[in-house]
Amino acid sequence: MNNKKHRAFLKWAGGKYSLTEQINQRLPAGKRLVEPFVGACSVFLNSDFDEYLLNDINADLIAMYNIIKRRPLGFIADAKRYFQPQYNTEQSYYQIRAEFNQSTDPYQRSLLFLYMNRHGYNGLCRYNQSGGFNVPFGRYKKPYFPEKELLFFAEKAKKAKFVCKPYQKLFQYLRNDDVLYCDPPYVPLSVSASFTGYAKEGFSLDDQANLARLARESKCAVLLSNHDTTLTQELYRDAVCDKIQVSRTISSNASNRNSVGEIFALFKAIDTNKN
């Protein structure tokens, strides 16, 4: 694989583009990379495995990835129409968001999902309790249409299978030559400040503990990333852990960048040949 880095075509909170070198340095060798929390696919796009099994619980995301894999040129042509100036207004955005929330057609939803990702606030992906996308208008001067990123994704997607399942299910499909990279929703840095909203996203502290248990018991090597907290240090105590400092925006003001501790935990493959 050449050293050119490839950006995801989506804007994504918690995306791993800036950390792909550190992640690749820590991923063991294997034939297939399995990602239970694939998100915007930065690790997939910047790693070199023979095969990929890529999962996310967001059905809109996985449907779009499968559509782009099957018919990239048609998708690009249709999606580009939404990146004309007349669609970059508050009125158009909220009309399209309402259309997305009422649509049951996977192809149409995929086109609008990309539009909202690039025109919505901060590239957020958020749904209300009823399943409606509810990110507000972003007010960008000229949203970027990621054509070259889409083309690269579609080419590399030939090596990948995209699925939409609960993260636990992925551990049932593992082969001996698999390597897992788990990038779950991070534990909150302040439990008192953010746990309520965090739990509503569907990944609780019980899930954090369950994921650590699955990683510990896996027959394959598992690399996890998370915030470096007392909780994660305890959950990953049986793993080989190392820590880095990451610059991260932790408020709506992009100038407020603080250094945050990040932990990488490697659970080595269990040797099934041992008695």
Rank of each mutant, 00 (worst) to 15 (best):
T230F: 09
T20V: 15
L61M: 08
G261P: 01
K268S: 11
D105H: 14
K156G: 03
K156Q: 14
Y121E: 09
L189C: 09
G138W: 00
N128L: 09
K200I: 00
L224N: 04
R97I: 01
V163M: 01
R216G: 05
L114N: 03
I57G: 00
R81C: 04
N258M: 12
Y93H: 02
G131R: 09
P185C: 04
D48H: 13
N253T: 09
Y17L: 15
S247Y: 13
D242L: 13
K219A: 06
L214Q: 03
V260G: 05
R237Y: 12
D271N: 15
A193Q: 10
Y121H: 12
G74S: 14
K156H: 11
N66L: 00
K169D: 13
L33V: 04
P143G: 10
R26Q: 15
Y65G: 01
Q95Y: 09
A157H: 02
S130T: 08
S225T: 15
G202K: 04
E21C: 12
Y236N: 03
Y186K: 03
N2P: 07
Q168C: 08
K169C: 07
W12D: 08
P185A: 06
F37I: 03
L223D: 01
K11R: 15
P146V: 11
P188G: 07
N88W: 02
L151D: 06
K31E: 12
D178S: 01
K16M: 13
K159H: 14
N122G: 10
E35L: 05
N134C: 09
R109G: 03
R213Q: 14
C41S: 15
K5V: 13
V260L: 11
A8G: 13
F49Y: 11
N176I: 07
F145L: 12
E35Q: 07
Y87K: 02
Y140P: 03
